[in-house]
Design a protein around this nucleic acid. Structure first.
Length: 165
DNA sequence: AAAGTGATTGTTGTA
DNA sequence: TACAACAATCACTTT
């Protein structure tokens, strides 16, 4: 009975806390209203990672993944630091909590570099999406013999994008 | 063996 | 406009 998870079938958060901090910034923010005060996710979607069963959606290795937010960029670095100071702690939950707490303690100026990097990532994402969409159009139907040429051309574009930075 | 889970915040995509 | 879903990570859990 380790019962580490407890819920078991609970997808990601089922019922997340979010009850004490959110109210604060809601008052003045008219643009974005409430940040989803209450539940984050209701349906039980399989995320699409696996599935790979008779279906067709998902399972697109070429599909570019969403660009990491500034917080995630910060997390990448934070994880290393956290791991060094806490080599024994490897739980994602521990790093996530510590990272979130630290992130909030950072000032806008300190977040700036991370946001800049995130913006850059987004730029690349758009570029890759462009290539991905283009591929989709060509991929709908056609002869696979010509596909090789297309793939090579697209890869070159992506590689070039990476070098541009 | 391989996919899923947990925990964080931000951004993207969709209705 | 507002919400749902997903992005990385890694040991453990489940099928």
């Amino acid at each position: 009975m380790k019962g580490a998870k407890g819920k078991g079938t609970a997808k990601r958060d089922a019922l997340k806390p979010v009850d004490d901090k959110i109210t604060v910034l809601v008052t003045n923010v008219n643009h974005y209203s409430f940040r989803k005060v209450g539940k984050r996710k209701a349906p039980a979607k399989a995320v699409g990672k696996s599935k790979a069963k008779g279906g067709k959606a998902a399972k697109d290795p070429n599909k570019p993944k969403r660009p990491p937010s500034a917080f995630f960029v910060f997390l990448e670095e934070f994880r290393q630091t956290f791991k060094k100071e806490n080599p024994t702690i490897k739980a994602v939950s521990a790093v996530g909590k510590a990272g979130g707490e630290k992130w909030k303690s950072l000032t806008a100026a300190e977040k700036a570099p991370y946001e800049a990097k995130a913006a850059k990532r987004k730029s690349e994402y758009e570029k890759q999406m462009n290539a991905y969409n283009k591929k989709q159009e060509s991929d709908v139907e056609d002869d696979e013999s010509d596909k090789s040429k297309s793939e090579v051309d697209e890869e070159s574009a992506q590689v070039s994008a990476l070098f541009r930075s």
